[in-house]
Design a protein around this nucleic acid. Structure first.
Lengths: 122, 122
DNA sequence: CAGTATCCCAGATGATACTG
DNA sequence: CAGTATCATCTGGGATACTG
């Protein structure tokens, strides 16, 4: 974990910048979570589970996740076509991290709420 | 860590949705990281350290962070004015999480790169 | 079913200039 | 110094419709 060149590089002064872009860009956490919680799924299943997402955006995100090696896409040339998505090994390696995040959430989300209320009153 | 209502709520099917919004919205990680790595800092110091950020956006992000209780702002009514920002107790509680993230980064970022290359060749 | 193709808009971001 | 004000920009995302 380098800190030395903190002042050198742009916003990448922050060594976790790249990971954040990969793992926490919009829609990726719901998708990964869904895939992790419910296993291999078809396009429509994801679409139904992640309410409010449009097929266009879901496709975009899935492609990105596939490109980054976090998700595996399997195409079955049938009629009608069947496509299945599942978490890759690499994607699964994020599980402890997500757990850590969920833990922080249950422990400190309340404090954030309080801080907001206090702030808004002033 | 509930999973039961995964299909009930919208994108919050993902229990870490709220935290992600708070901690990983744009510019927040560089700011928090800088504050964590270099301690209490004035506005200009942050501005210089986080290259490419404009004062407007820096102000916005700092306000948000302050409202969420992750950062403490101290105003010194002098001439010229002096304002200092520092991480709060709550903000500091994110440190292990960031460390975890940095660790994942050093271990797996290479795999992401490889996946991308492989994908782009096909 | 599993997407693509278009059109479109809001909100976020950037550039620039100005103040207490 | 520590912002704010204003204007221009621009891209992600939404709505809708269509296809192999």
């Amino acid at each position: 974990m380098r800190v030395a060149d903190t002042a050198t590089e742009p916003e990448l002064a922050c060594p976790i910048g790249p990971v954040v872009d990969i793992v926490f860009s919009r829609w990726t956490t719901p998708i990964l979570w869904s895939l992790h919680a419910h296993g291999r799924q078809r396009f429509v299943e994801l679409e139904r589970r992640i309410t409010r997402i449009t097929p266009k955006v879901l496709t975009q995100r899935l492609r990105q996740l596939e490109r980054d090696g976090l998700v595996v896409r399997t195409y079955h040339p049938e009629v009608p076509p069947r496509v299945e998505y599942e978490i890759s090994e690499l994607g699964r390696s994020l599980a402890p991290l997500f757990a850590h995040l969920a833990e922080w959430s249950t422990e400190h989300l309340g404090e954030v709420e309080q801080a907001r209320q206090a702030y808004d009153e002033a």
